[in-house]
Design a protein around this nucleic acid. Structure first.
Length: 317
DNA sequence: AATCTCACCAACCGCCGGGAC
DNA sequence: AGTCCCGGCGGTTGGTGAGAT
């Protein structure tokens, strides 16, 4: 089997487009140059050359015949490290990028579609809280899932699941408050869930950051906690009590807002996501610093797991 | 039965990093 | 050293089906 390893499913790299500098080289296959490559210099004029002849490529849904051709060819010959040249070889009137996407998201072996488990939900949510919308990394922690799948799942269901939980818990605590919103989908706040708490190792609890981050509480270090450098700690959602983190990630984020003195500002979901955004930005910054310090070649399980299982995190990246 | 609305998800788009030249 | 091109990524769009009106 030749080049099935071109996909990123198993924790091999971090995205190049992310806010962070790349953790790794991601394209070991890119050194393979082939006959039929489109590197011709024909687009030496102004602007970026299109990756394919837009006028002569088919768009839209793939037919079973096209799927069969692509699957069969790749299973026999691999991608050859050049997606752009692939459709010509197969005789498909498709853009190379489209072929790549079709293979990675649908045709390659062991792809799972739909039916996300509760555990997968939790993983996605924890990672989203920690690193934001870096779907390729999140998907890499879910065998058989693609970044596109995870992204779609988050956007269409998981986000609503969270907000639905918020709504449900709000009304359960005080049914009258169900209608306490503004009539435009905004919610009143009350009835916070009480969850059993897990405990961080005390060594991983840092002190407040200051510097405009006073509302955020540092919960665990992104690297050796013994170095005493508070700037190397990551921030969990702002007001989770020190040493505590909730087992249910939905409640975790929600409870973080419950105890925020600024919770009154969170009368609508939009505000919640804004705060979440702030947290994410800060975490990304911290990850960036952490990455610079560790010079890691690859985003791997050791780097992601602290965000998933902070109570068992040993303090090192 | 017809029409509208919404949710879902496959596919596209455009940007970026980095290797090849 | 500079330019070109490819692969990879996240954001967005558009087609489709199900449910509501």
């Amino acid at each position: 089997m030749s080049t099935f390893g071109t996909h990123h499913t198993h924790i091999s790299y971090i995205g190049t487009r992310a806010l962070l500098p790349p953790f790794s080289k991601s394209r070991e296959q890119s050194s393979v140059k082939e006959e039929g490559s489109t590197r011709t210099g024909e687009a030496s004029g102004m602007g970026r050359a299109p990756c394919c002849d837009k006028a002569n490529v088919k768009k839209g849904s793939w037919s079973p015949d096209e799927d069969a051709k692509l699957k069969s060819y790749i299973e026999q010959h691999g991608t050859g490290g050049n997606w752009i040249a692939l459709p010509r070889k197969i005789g498909l009137k498709r853009c190379g990028k489209s072929c790549r996407l079709r293979w990675l998201n649908y045709l390659r072996p062991n792809i799972k579609h739909g039916g996300f488990s509760e555990e997968e939900d939790n993983i996605i949510f924890r990672l989203y809280i920690s690193i934001g919308s870096r779907w390729s990394i999140i998907a890499s922690q879910l065998p058989g899932r693609t970044d596109n799948d995870v992204k779609n799942y988050w956007n269409t269901k998981l986000k609503k699941k969270f907000l639905g939980k918020q709504r449900k818990e709000t009304s359960a605590a005080d049914p009258k408050r169900e209608t306490a919103g503004d009539g435009h989908g905004n919610l009143g706040i009350t009835g916070w869930p009480q969850q059993p708490a897990l405990t961080y190792p005390i060594d991983h609890v840092c002190h407040d950051i200051g510097q405009g981050q006073a509302s955020m509480r540092k919960e665990h270090g992104a690297r050796d906690p013994d170095d005493g450098d508070a700037s190397n700690c990551l921030v969990m959602p702002s007001t989770v009590p020190q040493q505590e983190i909730y087992d249910d990630p939905f409640s975790l984020a929600w409870s973080s807002l419950q105890q925020n003195s600024g919770a009154q500002a969170l009368l609508c979901p939009t505000s919640f996501w804004t705060e979440l955004d702030d947290i994410l930005r800060f975490n990304l910054m911290k990850m960036d610093e952490s990455n610079a310090a560790t010079k890691s070649e690859n985003m791997n399980w050791n780097e992601v797991s602290p965000f998933l299982y902070p109570n068992t995190y040993d303090g090192r990246l």
